[in-house]
């Protein structure tokens, strides 16, 4: 009984140790990621705001959405750059200043949304379907079909 108990606690120790290492690695990765990829969600030089985007991959298609409040519907543009990057842009109904949000220690005036989204799997761009409702853009890109494997 005693040996069983000891063995279990040894496993617990290893488990705990592994978990600490895992957490440490995770934390460092996050810090590195933040160091290289975190940036403001706005760019005063290009006068653009980066919208929130989302990519969903289903067995048949890739659905890219973007939240574009204040966007003028007739200015929403969706462009496929190469095979795997989707560029989304839209003009805003009115100019937004950082001062509108009470921010006075940075300057910035924005008139456009702009972002680039990576498409994780091959898609056929010709058949894309685009909709814009309640300020949310939805782009549906059918996934490329390969060839069928016959089951004998």
């Amino acid at each position: 009984m005693a040996s069983k108990k000891r063995r279990r606690s040894l496993l617990d120790l290893i488990d705990e140790y592994m978990r600490t290492i895992e957490e440490e690695i995770e934390e460092r990765f996050e810090a590195l990621h933040n160091l290289f990829f975190e940036r403001p969600s706005w760019n005063a030089r290009t006068r653009t705001i980066e919208p929130l985007c989302n990519v969903l991959v289903t067995p048949d298609e890739v659905v890219v959405t973007a939240d574009l409040p204040y966007a003028k519907e007739d200015t929403v543009k969706v462009k496929l750059l190469g095979d795997d990057v989707l560029e989304i842009s839209a003009e805003m109904k009115r100019k937004i200043c950082l001062e509108d949000f009470g921010i006075t220690h940075h300057e910035g005036e924005f008139s456009e949304f702009h972002c680039r989204v990576n498409i994780p799997v091959p898609v056929s761009a010709e058949a894309k379907r685009v909709s814009f409702k309640n300020g949310i853009l939805e782009v549906r890109l059918p996934r490329k079909r390969g060839y069928e494997i016959k089951i004998e």
Partner: peptide, 14 residues
């Protein structure tokens, strides 16, 4: 104020 809130809330949402 829906649109204004959506714009303001982007960073905390992310």
């Amino acid at each position: 104020k829906g649109e204004e809130i959506r714009l303001k809330a982007r960073d905390i949402m992310k």
